[in-house]
């Protein structure tokens, strides 16, 4: 690549602050399931833990469990669980899973 050209001075700007966590509900549910599984000594806790690790690295808000399928360690079962939980959550008057930007 062009090595002789000096790097241009970076443009300065203000970035819109993003919520600390893009998917707080999904994170909370995965933590719940992980802790539940751990309490019962089920190996499923590793599945939830792995999924949680990729979810925490993903910066975009997910609108559904199905959409989480693109993340590492999110299989069909887990995505379905998230969708079911989301349905219950919305039915009981809970807010949307995504944190809207200010």
């Amino acid at each position: 690549m062009a090595s002789s050209a000096p790097a241009p001075a970076p443009r300065l700007g203000r970035k819109r602050p993003l919520p600390a966590c893009a998917n707080p509900l999904f994170v909370r549910w995965l933590q719940e399931w992980r802790d539940e599984a751990a309490g019962q000594g089920r190996r499923a806790r590793f599945v939830y833990q792995k999924a949680l690790r990729s979810l925490l690295r993903y910066p975009l808000p997910l609108r559904s469990g199905k959409e989480a399928k693109i993340l590492q360690h999110f299989g069909d079962t887990l995505c379905r669980m998230l969708d079911q939980r989301l349905e219950q959550h919305l039915a009981s008057g809970g807010g949307k899973p995504v944190s809207e930007l200010p």
């Binding site: 990729s54 975009l60 693109i70 993340l71 590492q72």
Partner: peptide, 21 residues
């Protein structure tokens, strides 16, 4: 970003989406 390998075109789109966001 915790995303699994996808078809190439989809990977490019996803990376652009993440960057823009």
């Amino acid at each position: 970003f915790g995303v699994r390998p996808l078809p190439k075109r989809q990977m490019v789109l996803k990376l652009k989406e993440i960057f823009q966001y």
